[in-house]
């Protein structure tokens, strides 16, 4: 009876370890991809793309692995980790968007390989509309 209980506990520990290894491995892989993208990509906008998406997934996986480790192996359910994971998941893409918009507004050129630029035409349309409104008034 007691022996089988121990065996069950043992296999659960192995399963939790496998889960932690998968999560942290994914996170480390995506962190490395983030650094690679920030070094290799040609201009600010593509670098923003690399830094916002893949680094979000990377840090999310590593934090989830840490959370699972402290929950199952040490019996600590840390609510601050949950809040931090949700906060990072919401704010990291927003930060990437903010930097990209600020970079476009300060007039940084796009790379030479860029095929189309929708933001320029959108800003032109908005400026024309504002001028028409002023003339109508």
């Amino acid at each position: 009876m007691r022996n089988s209980w121990r065996e069950g506990r043992f296999s659960i520990e192995i399963l939790v370890d496998i889960l932690i290894i998968i999560l942290i491995g994914t996170g480390v892989l995506f962190s490395a991809v983030t650094a690679l993208g920030l070094i290799r990509l040609p201009d600010v906008y593509t670098r923003t793309h690399a830094a916002s998406k893949s680094s979000t997934l990377g840090v999310l996986s590593i934090l989830l692995g840490t959370f699972v480790h402290f929950w199952f192996n040490e019996d600590i359910f840390n609510t601050q980790m949950v809040v931090a994971i949700a906060f990072l998941f919401i704010t990291q893409p927003v930060a990437g968007h903010l930097i990209g918009r600020a970079a476009y507004m300060t007039g940084i050129k796009v790379a030479e390989e860029t095929v189309r630029d929708d933001m320029g035409t959108a800003i032109e349309n908005r400026r024309n509309n504002q001028q028409e409104e002023l003339e109508n008034e």
Partner: peptide, 23 residues
């Protein structure tokens, strides 16, 4: 080359620092 590049790198550094603290 530009300031925006450095801000992007700083943002990613903050996130990487979080994962270093977790590890």
């Amino acid at each position: 080359p530009t300031v925006a590049d450095r801000v992007v790198a700083l943002d990613a550094i903050g996130v990487t620092l979080v994962s270093i603290v977790a590890l």
